[in-house]
Design a protein around this nucleic acid. Structure first.
Lengths: 209, 209
DNA sequence: TAGATTGTTAATCGATTAACAATC
DNA sequence: TAGATTGTTAATCGATTAACAATC
């Protein structure tokens, strides 16, 4: 039974389902039951069925799920077929690493432009992504209307840049600065990648006993 | 009342407490109540008190918490005072970005060595971290006994390298490859940084409505 | 002392798991 | 058909919030 309010816990599991189904699909597996998938992912079959039931009915009694179909359904739920546009703000080492290595298009994102203040970088191109001056940001965003901006700028510039991006109409910020951005607009979403928090969690675990 | 089994939810909030207290401390604030901290962090005062009570009694009735003291208590819980040693495995763009930008020492980690297979990199130095050949990995680990390895190698090499590191005695793997590592040993912890999952979560949110 | 705020117990809320009728 | 497996309801478990006596 389709639900209206999906809990954060469920949403955070969706990409993992997607990844596993993608994997199985590329290995040529055609169908899978919730219990086999659960075993693979180390979660209960119940949870998988419960999670999926928030969005619809994708399986078939006695058969399980068709992998290609379920993969595409979850992809659709995640919005990978929406053709979202994305820009990179900041081309330091991290921004550069993302531009170079991260497979944005596999997640359904179109990226062709990054912005930085460094003259040394402006005009250069990384993996097909050209670096522009931040002076051109406003015009670009008005013209192209990217939905998402990846923020890899220095700490100090983070909040100001976030405000600017939001006022320009960006709806999602993928935030790699270790600053907790304050955002008023309820339609704008910030997804934080907090390296430090992640490492400290690991530090905690290896420190026990 | 001190607890034995701390839930994952609590552990994942600790770094955030630590970060906020660190911030307040560096701003010169001396004391804070659970309610003010809660307001700042957008969580309930109850949750803060409940969380902290898992580890001991750090506050004072009528006063609240001494920031310097609580910060150092939480730092201690997280193990930032343990002097953990860390190595980088893989010096591609991402490894390079981490070596260059990430403040490992602020998290209490000692890092001076990275490993890679590329001859072009071996012998070079990034931000005081020298790059060695992977041929030297075993000797180094036996000699120095680093607790944590940061894994930023290509997908294909991930599981093999993880196995090797674990057999050498590494206890924590900070995993940036988008491979779900399989680890038998219950004393070894893997902390995943799944960029793709994070971006897809954002994709989901901006796709609603 | 009076006011503030803790640590903890109890109540509530939400998420996970189990069970099972429905059905492919 | 018989076996397998779904989607969903109910039961359980755990996490969050509220309340309050204790006390600085």
């Amino acid at each position: 039974m389709k639900k209206d309010n999906i809990s954060d816990a469920v949403i955070r599991r969706l990409p993992r389902y997607y990844r596993h189904l993608d994997d199985l699909h590329s290995k040529g597996v055609v169908r899978i039951s919730s219990s086999s998938l659960g075993e693979r992912m180390d979660i209960t079959a119940s949870q998988i069925r419960q999670d999926l039931s928030c969005f619809g009915e994708f399986g078939q009694q006695g058969y399980g799920y068709n992998i290609m179909e379920l993969r595409s359904e979850i992809g659709h739920i995640l919005g990978v077929d929406k053709g979202h546009r994305l820009i990179l703000i900041g081309v330091g080492h991290l921004g550069h690493a993302l531009a170079q290595n991260f497979n944005f298009s596999h997640m359904g994102f179109h990226v062709d432009t990054a912005f930085d203040i460094s003259c040394a970088l402006i005009g250069s191109s990384i993996n097909g992504i050209t670096v522009h001056s931040l002076d051109e940001l406003d015009d670009y965003v008005y013209a192209v209307r990217p939905e998402v901006a990846v923020l890899t700028v220095p700490k100090k510039a983070a909040q100001g840049m976030a405000d600017r991006l939001i006022s320009l109409g960006v709806r999602g910020i993928w935030n790699f600065t270790n600053v907790e951005l304050s955002v008023e607009d309820a339609d704008v979403f910030v997804e934080n990648v907090q390296f430090a928090d992640s490492l400290l969690t690991l530090s905690y675990r290896i420190s026990q006993k």
